[in-house]
């Protein structure tokens, strides 16, 4: 092997630093471009609503025609959980509205998300976790929750009560849909 000697015609320092800057810029540019698909891939779940909720069946409308107290109903909703589909059971209450039509309340406490129960003796909704108390129509009476129980969209179709189940942001005074 020939002896290794450095060329006397070595690039000048200016040329070396110019090429250095070029390499740095090129690397940064290409790196930034390549980072875009990776960022999109990582952030994908943030951009999609995790649930696809349609109208769920809550039972025959006549069952709720003459309510004297809130009725607990369990519905099954289909949700998307990433690449899978899950069915989950959700509890809700059907109460009589002021116009006589059924209103549907979510059993999820707007405070921290515990399940609210109907207390027949007190004729109040009581959240077992932090003692949030709601009237029979869902309005807040006492305790830490920032608002009354959340009303869900409901309609009667073909004699059956249909509900659109949704989640709402907790700990805020107004009802904000999150999914």
């Amino acid at each position: 092997m020939s002896e290794v000697t450095f060329s006397s015609a070595r690039p000048t320092e200016t040329r070396r630093s110019f090429l250095g800057a070029l390499i740095a810029m090129g690397t940064a540019t290409v790196g930034a471009i390549l980072a875009i698909p990776l960022a999109r891939l990582t952030l994908d779940p943030l951009w999609r609503t995790t649930t696809q909720i349609l109208w769920s069946d809550a039972g025959p409308a006549k069952d709720f025609a003459a309510l004297t107290a809130p009725v607990r109903v369990q519905i099954t909703i289909e949700q998307r959980d990433g690449w899978r589909k899950v069915l989950s059971d959700k509890a809700l209450y059907v109460v009589k509205g002021s116009d006589g039509r059924p209103r549907v309340l979510s059993a999820v406490c707007p405070h921290l998300g515990c399940s609210i129960g109907w207390n027949e003796d007190r004729r109040q909704f009581v959240c077992p976790c932090h003692n949030g108390v709601f009237a029979a129509d869902g309005t807040l009476m006492s305790g830490p929750p920032p608002r009354g129980m959340d009303e869900l969209d409901a309609m009667v179709e073909d004699g059956r009560l249909k509900v659109r189940y949704q989640y709402f942001r907790q700990l805020v005074p107004t009802k904000e849909i999150i999914a």
Partner: peptide, 24 residues
């Protein structure tokens, strides 16, 4: 680095900058 099989008449050169530019 072993260099070319037939020693080139050009002198040795450091990796930076030209070889790095070629690699990149």
């Amino acid at each position: 680095a072993s260099g070319a099989p037939v020693p080139r008449r050009t002198a040795a050169e450091s990796f930076y900058p030209r070889q790095l530019v070629m690699d990149m």
